[in-house]
Amino acid sequence: MRLPRFEYHAPERIEQVFDLMESLGSAAELMAGGTDLLPGLKLGKRSCDHIVSLSRLSELKELSFNEAKGLRIGAGTVLADVAAHGPVRDRYRMLASAIADLATVQVRHRATVAGNLCNASPCADTAPPLMAMGAIIEISSSGGRRDIPLEELMVGPGSIALEKGEIVTAIIVPTPRLESRSTYIKFSPRSKVDIAAVNVAVSTTTTRGRVDEVEIFLGTVAPTPIRARRAEVLLKGSHLSESLLASAAAAARDECLPITDFRATEEYKRHLVEVLTKRALMTTTGIA
């Protein structure tokens, strides 16, 4: 497998990236780790005349945590470093576990969270957990910075809400509520190392048997990862019971829009959404 020819740019200052992206427009692709972009080019699933690499921008390699501002993951930080980061392991366990099962050791040494999100694959493993944790995307351009909720970043398979000349510079994840409990389930029927057939991230906060807060995000079952709003509505404020979790899971099943692929059929994915959502809720709420 060989790559098609392209021009390569590796600016050392971020302004140069903005300029290049503005002047080259759709002829250029940004590259972080390249683990989505390069296979896509080789397989003819995408094409570009220019690659603008983020590899020389040391400012994007930032990874920091503070109680007030939360976690800041620079767009150039590789997955392996995020997963090994002390605060991530202690406070963002759902993210750490999602990364631990994402791809392979070799890929995690190159790939970035930003690339995973900007690739906008419905099955991106970091998306449901980050969405459940309320992640914010920092977008920069020559015109300045703007922040959007991660939920608004992906607009369809392979398509994100960036304007010409904009790039993602960081992902900011608020400090999780201490009382909240969360879990991430990635399911493949075929193998322990595989792209998900369905992935589910759930985060709940309960007091005395009542659900105060709940976030449920589903991956691989719609054009983008989606929020199971109806399931959340059922749960929020209600008293926990197994039958409540079951009806929430059934609601999640009804609100997803999966398609058939190599890994599973549409009906099976729906079924999995129900089973896995219930399992995840049982784990976070401790109801068995």
Partner: peptide, 9 residues
């Protein structure tokens, strides 16, 4: 660090 040299320019 181990990487896939087929996915590294």
């Amino acid at each position: 660090r181990s990487v896939n040299s087929c996915l590294t320019l």
